[in-house]
Write a protein that binds this DNA or RNA. Sequence first.
RNA 1: GCACCCGUAGCUCAGCUGGAUAGAGCACUGCCCUCCGAAGGCAGGGGUCGGGGGUUCGAAUCCCUUCGGGUGCGCCA
Length: 633
Amino acid sequence: MKDLASAFTAANARVFAKLGLDPKHADVRRSDRPDLGEFQANGALAVAKAAGKKPQEVAQSVAAEWSATELSPAPSIAGPGFLNFKVTADALTRRAQFVADDAHAGASLVEHKRRVVVDYGGPNVAKGMHVGHLRASIIGESVKRIYRFRGDEVWGDAHFGDWGFQMGLVITALEDELGGFDDEAKLDARLKALTLDQLEAIYPAYAKRVKEGDINVRDRARKATAALQGGSELHRTIWKAMHDVSMAAQKRDFASLGVDFDLWLGESDADPLIPGMVEDLGKKGLLEDDQGARILRVAGPGETRKKKRDDGTVVEVESPDPLLVVSSEGSAMYGTTDLATIVQRMRDQKPDLILYCVDQRQADHFEQVYRAAAKAGYAQRDQLEHIGFGTMNGPDGTPFKTRAGGVLKLQDLIGQAEEKARHRLKENEIGADFSKEEFEDVAHKVAIAAIKFADLSNFRGTSYIFDLDRFMSFEGKTGPYLLYQAVRIKSILRKAEEMGLTPSPPLRGRGQGEGGRSDAQAPERLNAPHPPTPAPQGGGGVIAIEHESERALALALDAFDGALRTAYDKKSPHFLAEHAFNLAQAFSGFYTNCPILPSEGAVRASRLALAAATLKQLTLTLDLLGIEVPERM
RNA sequence: GCACCCGUAGCUCAGCUGGAUAGAGCACUGCCCUCCGAAGGCAGGGGUCGGGGGUUCGAAUCCCUUCGGGUGCGCCA
């Protein structure tokens, strides 16, 4: 069953077609003038010009043709030709009942199922997870869930940063620490004792030295990089130890964030494909020698820009810059690895689409890689898409730093949020009767909900200011508020059960007893087959929409599919975050104005069914954002 | 220097394939708990949508220009 806006649009398109008007202007959407109608169509104005008629006349003929539909009475005309619709109680009730009975809460499937790889997270072997990885992980996880939920076949890939110059740099640092790698036993012992904390300390120190012009370190690190990529057994052994210790720590961090991958691959996994790929690129005549390196030009004819050189002179160069495929040291660069990863994915997953959920600042880089892939025939340009996002900033508006100026570790950030959650819970006298385990579990869920919702309620493309106090507030547009609303409904449904009231079908199916599970189960739930037809209606909980607040709630429930489709099309979870908040608010109004348990008979059954449907859809929406709802809080 | 992104209420942000009176949260003011969780609800004040010009019946939205902020620009990833 279609959502109401789609049903209206389809019906309106038929009317347009019948009148000889272009149906593409027939779009009907939720009204932004609720005083005039619940849905609106503005197409009469646009189409009037093309048809050489007056907007008012077009609107009148459309309105006249509409009179017979069951969806709505004939629309009213306002202003120069706006059409305003009000849904019939019948149509709205049917829709609400469908959402209540549907295992997917009214969400539609994609028309054409695609195979999609979502590349996100992007942790770095030599750097622990910090706040910089937060957005990539949170947004990517949500995009992955949204795509999967709509019916695509989806692989999430962590794409570890475990290759390239950074590895050579850390190996060089270790060489200095040990005074060389000649003593095998010493090296072995050192590798066994290696921790991620140590890697985290080593890497920035050496990166800084190179950045400050230590050519000796730079050249040794480049040689070490080339040796690693060249298959040196010593270098591979050291790399493996670093890789393993880092991977274990990263997996723990992802788990606590509620982020999970189908593929735990890294840049290194694409390395075996590089020699063959470089050879192939050479054969295709795409590579050129340039200052000792081999490059692949991706700019089209006439694509140039001006560039300022270090000496101050300005020259005209091609744009985008060529992709540097092989460095003058003979090693593979970032772009080379990314290109090889495309080859690998096309071979293994055969995706129709690869989404890269990576910082917006890398837009130019991906443009180079995508163009190179298209030129080489590895993928079509429109199969590759960069889902860029802005930075998470501190109060000063620049990328988030700790007070000391360093990066904040992910675990410390989560810990801070949990601490605030504990305080808030205690302040509100929640959880006094909880076991320690449940209390900690709730605090963790509240913390994660706060962090994720704050991130996902902003459009991904823009940067936002991180303010933990604001995010952790239990009031307003926050994660904790949404959890509160969901938990409040759970509480009502529990009471209803205690009163011996027959739970309606959706309550049994999903709403109750679903929380408190591990994160690992979330993707599995979303993998559940999407039923092509709604589940049969149960005996209890027949919905009847009477009160104005019930109407508002039903309209909010109906809007889920539209929000989901927009989030999918635009790869922007914030449309779903917005929906979750609207739904929670609509429920709150309903809760205030329409007593559920204190009412009786059919009214109570209907309201219970509405509450259960709301919980189901709210839980599902939050799940698509990667947010878990506790049983109580 | 060139390119891209952003500038909307006191603050944090939506809206931007052009459409009616520009929205939300916080903060502020005032109401509503003998009633299912008030972590709530309702009402109100608050805006030259950075400035200027243009296209259009109609511009926060499209084009040009200007100012302010951010980011990127081959041997890091």
